[in-house]
């Protein structure tokens, strides 16, 4: 087994554990941290595939993923602060304003 294949397995595990965190966490801030885990898993997969294939395009895509992650954090934490100011709640099961 080559070492890049092992890193791709690690990246799949990282992505799925980020998804697990999005499903199970109660706090909104830790839920956002779990989405960051998913983005990091995708980055790791792109870079290790890049090493295996022998190009640089995967690293360019990983750079764009980092850009989108920074934008996502700005918007997501702005939403968390806005929700907190609206209702004072911070649990992920308490945000039901659109359902009611």
């Amino acid at each position: 087994m080559k070492i890049e294949v092992a890193y791709i397995l690690i990246s799949i595990f990282l992505f799925l554990s980020g998804l697990f965190g999005v499903i199970i966490r109660k706090n909104l801030i830790t839920l956002l941290v779990s989405t960051e885990l998913m983005l990091n898993g995708v980055n790791l997969g792109l870079v290790s595939m890049d090493k295996m294939v022998g190009g640089v395009e995967g690293q360019v895509f990983a750079l764009f993923v980092i850009t989108v992650a920074a934008a996502e954090v700005a918007i997501g934490l702005g939403l968390v602060v806005a929700i907190f100011r609206l209702r004072g709640y911070e649990g992920s099961s308490e945000i039901i304003q659109l359902r009611d």
């Binding site: 109660k26 706090n27 801030i29 941290v33 960051e36 700005a74 907190f84 709640y89 911070e90 099961s93």
Partner: peptide, 30 residues
């Protein structure tokens, strides 16, 4: 540079703006 400096500091800043007892009410997992 981007993650370990910018994004982590952003998270810590947001946590400091939210009152602590409200955060403690919703911790843990389902």
């Amino acid at each position: 540079i981007v993650y370990a400096v910018a994004i982590i500091v952003f998270y810590v800043l947001v946590i400091t703006t939210i009152p602590w007892e409200k955060v403690k009410k919703f911790e843990g997992i389902y």
